[in-house]
């Protein structure tokens, strides 16, 4: 294709978006609505994933030995842990380290510990699992080891979150797919109206020897442009509201003094989101066009 043809195609496409501005507006709104819903899912999933990652980095599981267990016993427990194939990392917390931690935690009230030493505290191991999905089994195994007193683990939460995320993934993919298909049809219908209005022009073009692609491209450009604008609008709207929600939420978390859950800043995810919006918007627009002109090319 020659440069002047590309120029012609682009000019025609842009002109048509403007000429049919009411129809274009309807299509843009459809794409915008779909992409905003897609964006909501995307942001929810991104935040869940982000928090799961964070949880994964935190000590997931802590194995406490009997406080009376001697060094030999502790060594045996440690070996058993290292040998376990589900465990990725084992870090020992000695009695002294545990004592220091408590002191730190008590801060000004550290004098409560006066007269005590580390001997009453148990040795423990912080464990990272290879896959949190197995945590239930691992806990059972670890409890059977001689000298292990108790095992603490955020097991249920982890499992629930991980299942929950899977479901959200599935639901959001299905819903987004449905929404996008609906958008394709709505757009193809609006573009069909513009094609219908120009069916004479199309048939003239066919009579004077225009190729199908030459006829199709301006409409595809029109569809892509509509998709592009829809993507831009929905991106701005999503970003604006996400920022507000994120600010509000973060403030409340700070007030509540917890950092178990944090929300991603919009600028941490806006690039992949923009790329995805643009890709989906333009694809949906292009497909809508291609579908709508098919019928009129058979002269």
């Amino acid at each position: 294709m020659k440069v002047r043809t590309i120029k012609y195609i682009f000019n025609e496409g842009v002109k048509n978006v403007y000429k049919n501005r009411l129809m274009s507006l309807a299509s843009i709104s459809t794409i915008t609505a779909s992409l905003i819903i897609f964006g909501i899912f995307y942001l929810i999933i991104a935040n869940i994933n982000h928090n799961i990652m964070k949880l994964k980095e935190q000590p997931e599981m802590q194995v406490f030995c009997n406080p009376e267990l001697d060094d030999m016993g502790v060594k045996l427990v440690q070996n058993a842990l290292i040998r376990n194939s589900n465990i990725a990392e084992v870090t020992m917390v000695t009695k002294e380290e545990a004592f220091e931690k408590i002191k730190e935690m008590l801060d000004e009230d550290a004098d409560l510990l006066e007269g005590l030493d580390s001997s009453f505290l148990p040795v423990s191991f912080i464990i990272k699992l290879k896959d949190i999905a197995n945590s239930g089994e691992v806990v059972k195994e670890l409890k059977k080891i001689n000298g292990v007193d108790k095992v603490t683990y955020p097991q249920k939460t982890m499992e629930i979150i991980s299942k929950f995320t899977n479901w959200i993934h599935v639901i959001s993919i299905v819903l987004t797919a449905i929404l996008l298909i609906i958008s394709v049809f709505i757009i193809s219908n609006t573009i069909k109206l513009t094609v219908f209005a120009r069916r004479k022009e199309i048939s003239i073009m066919k009579y004077i020897g225009a190729t199908n692609w030459f006829i199709r491209w301006p409409f595809i450009v029109e569809g892509i442009l509509i998709g592009f604008i829809g993507a831009a609008v929905s991106f701005v709207i999503s970003g604006f509201f996400y920022n507000r929600i994120e600010n509000r939420f973060t403030q409340e978390l700070i007030q509540a003094g917890t950092d178990i859950i944090t929300l991603l800043k919009f600028n941490e995810i806006n690039l992949p989101m923009l790329v995805m919006f643009m890709f989906l918007g333009c694809t949906v627009g292009a497909f809508g066009s291609i579908i709508s002109i098919r019928r009129y090319l058979k002269v």
């Binding site: 003239i204 009579y207 020897g209």
Partner: peptide, 20 residues
């Protein structure tokens, strides 16, 4: 797909002019 090239070698005029 070769039809366009055939039509470029044939000029057509209709009763209703068919101008844009």
């Amino acid at each position: 797909r070769d039809i366009p090239y055939l039509r470029r070698s044939i000029g057509v005029v209709f009763q209703d002019f068919r101008l844009l």
